[in-house]
Amino acid sequence: MTLLVTAFAAVISTVLWYKNAPKSDMMLGVLCLMYWGASLMWLVDAVFEYAELKAEYFTPAPAEMLNDLFLGLSVVALGLIVWLVILLIKDPRGVVKATLFKKK
């Protein structure tokens, strides 16, 4: 479930990046790569888990699934927070700078 939620986040952020490209003032590329990196890593984790559990992997207990969904959503939220912090620090549109320093 965590892999699924992260993969959806990766796909949605990639579509948004493509829609806004070649402009990169929102740094959506960073968000895309972050989610894709995590998705690829969880894919490996899922393959190993499938090799161990076989078909049982696809029938998790409801409580386990709910916990994984909650984790997936938390991961997406953390990814968004990390991206937002990077965006505010790098400030490609100069918004933070313009807010902090007003022209005379």
Partner: peptide, 17 residues
């Protein structure tokens, strides 16, 4: 770099979880 750091941070969070 972004693929690796992104994956590492989010996976580290899962391990904390």
């Amino acid at each position: 770099r972004n693929l690796l750091w992104g994956g590492t941070v989010l996976l580290a969070f899962e391990h904390i979880w």
